[in-house]
């Protein structure tokens, strides 16, 4: 059938026998996917506040598109794709500004550790930053697969999010993991 898909229709594609009104469907979709969308975004951005904002933007887009989701036949895949793109785009914008601010404030030097916990926190931050830098060197598809899998997204929805067959997800994942480790080791002076 050709025509605009409402949330009710989207719901039937992704959630069997959902026949409630559009608004109720939106609530259900929100509750079903919000935590994972937020989890994807916080892995990408590292900022709870920014992740909340972006997650809301992602669902706002879904809300705005209640009349038509085009060819997106699975709301989960659509949400994860939009969330990943939003996260990485925000990160790119933020990284530029952040880098400048850090240089400006001369904070790129290692933080002085006055206690074991402070030292540990500083190391954790450095590790996290190294991982993010390593991720930034990967292809967008590889980054997305790693983040989605790490957020607990199933292979089928990862496949929909990045536009490949479910049977290809494992292969992409293996290659992306190898690439991330290689990048991390290259960037990390201690390894």
């Amino acid at each position: 059938m050709v025509g605009p898909r409402t949330f009710a229709t989207v719901g039937r594609i992704s959630m069997a026998d959902v026949d409630a009104p559009v608004e109720a469907d939106f609530d259900e979709i929100f509750r079903r996917y919000y935590a994972t969308v937020y989890g994807v975004l916080i892995r990408i951005t590292g900022s709870p506040e920014e992740s909340e904002d972006l997650a809301q933007e992602v669902f706002l887009r879904l809300h705005e598109r209640s009349g038509s989701l085009g060819e997106d036949r699975n709301v989960g895949g659509w949400l994860y794709r939009v969330a990943s793109n939003a996260g990485f785009n925000a990160l790119r914008s933020r990284r530029r500004l952040h880098r400048r601010l850090l240089r400006w404030a001369n904070l790129e030097r290692p933080l002085s550790a006055s206690s074991p916990s402070a030292a540990s926190e500083a190391e954790d931050r450095q590790d996290a930053e190294l991982v993010r830098r390593a991720l930034s060197h990967l292809r967008e598809r590889d980054r997305t697969v790693l983040i989605l899998r790490s957020s607990g997204v199933a292979y089928a929805e990862i496949a929909l999010a990045i536009g490949v067959k479910p049977s290809s997800v494992g292969t992409i994942l293996v290659r992306a993991e190898a690439a991330l480790r290689a990048q991390f080791e290259q960037l990390s002076p201690s390894i």
């Binding site: 933007e57 939009v82 785009n89 925000a90 933020r94």
Partner: peptide, 18 residues
């Protein structure tokens, strides 16, 4: 892929949030 699905607001919002 980003061009195909990245929409209004999110990039702007992310930057603004930061």
């Amino acid at each position: 892929q980003a061009s195909g699905s990245q929409g209004f607001g999110s990039d702007q919002s992310g930057t603004a949030a930061f």
